[in-house]
């Protein structure tokens, strides 16, 4: 069993409801096992769901789709993706009501820009999930918004009736199989100055919406899209700690710093985020590639291979020897 040495705070939850939304999409309800309120989140936020799948620790980010402010439970929707890394298949096939999972605290990489005079939302397919939470929030604060939502068909579209019933004319649904298309150019040209645009959906759709808007003179500052950053994981590797006379293994979801700590070697750190420079470690020798992920070292230092920030950086290759 892989044990995570990740020290960031986590939330233990129990799955209390699983709903088949469409033939491909399931909705999961998570409630905290300790009964305490969950952290508040905002529209656009996601959590990283940790799944212990045998010896593999999977970590997948999913947008929170419940109403922001509801702290008794979180809801996510997961689309079955047989070609993915395996997380969605695990959620669909192995997770049942009563299953225990672990979540990260909410993170928002797709926040609402509150300066906007109006919010123009675009969603495609499963990309509807962050949009649901955003609209719930915008409606609560009385902000102007509209949603344009593209789906394959009435049956494949998630939450169509709920959206029509709740938001009426503020929602326009476009069904591929009916030949319906978002009238993008007309729509974009009609927006009042100060409108902000948000898009979440398949890559092709996002590119189409964003490039059309740019072509009509929309500034980059008014364009927002959801881009999930992959968790800082990678292939496992070995590190030789010369000063401690130890060889350690770094797991795929473990940082070099965590592995050093797990081996009982005291290593300095402050931020654990690649910025403060406290954990800077001298590289004695290496045969392979240092994967620098920090913001601290300069480009020249990254190229030089003399230093590494073990809190976020990784290694691929035959041998890495550190002065630690």
């Amino acid at each position: 069993m892989t044990k995570s040495a990740d020290r960031t705070p986590k939330i233990d939850v129990r799955v209390t409801q699983i709903v088949d939304v469409t033939s491909e999409i399931k909705r999961f309800r998570f409630e905290p096992t300790d009964g305490k309120p969950l952290p508040v989140f905002a529209g656009g936020a996601h959590v990283v769901v940790e799944m212990e799948d045998g010896d593999t620790l999977r970590r997948n980010p999913y947008s929170l789709m419940s109403s922001p402010g509801a702290t008794d439970a979180y809801n996510i929707s997961v689309r079955r993706d047989p070609g993915g890394r395996g997380g969605s298949m695990f959620m669909h096939d192995r997770v049942t009501v009563g299953s225990l999972l672990r979540l990260s605290h909410p993170v928002n990489l797709f926040p609402i820009d509150r300066r906007a005079r109006k919010h123009l939302l675009f969603a495609g397919g499963i990309g509807i999930t962050p949009t649901l939470a955003m609209m719930s929030e915008l409606a609560r604060y009385g902000d102007a918004f509209e949603l344009n939502y593209a789906v394959r068909s009435e049956n494949d579209g998630a939450y169509l009736d709920q959206l029509r019933n709740t938001y009426g004319k503020r929602v326009s649904i476009y069904r591929d199989d009916q030949g319906e298309q978002i009238p993008l150019t007309t729509l974009l040209a009609a927006q009042p100055l100060g409108t902000h645009l948000y898009v979440c959906g398949p890559g092709g759709m996002m590119n189409w919406v964003l490039s059309t808007a740019e072509g009509l003179g929309w500034p980059a500052q008014n364009l927002h899209s959801e881009r999930f950053l992959a968790p800082p994981s990678g292939s496992p590797y070995e590190v030789r700690l010369a000063a401690s006379d130890l060889s350690i293994k770094v797991g795929p979801h473990q940082s070099m710093l965590e592995a050093i700590e797990a081996a009982g070697v005291d290593a300095p750190y402050l931020c654990r985020g690649g910025a403060c420079g406290q954990c800077e470690t001298r590289v004695i020798s290496f045969d392979g590639t240092l994967l620098h992920n920090d913001h601290y070292l300069t480009d020249d230092e990254h190229a030089g291979g003399q230093k590494v920030m073990p809190c976020v950086s990784r290694f691929e290759g035959r041998e890495l020897v550190l002065d630690r």
Binding site: L188, A189, A190, Q191, P192, L193, G194, T195, A213, L216, G217, W218, N222
Partner: peptide, 10 residues
Amino acid sequence: ELANAHMGTQ
């Protein structure tokens, strides 16, 4: 002029 303007205004 700005109050009446649309996105795409430079």
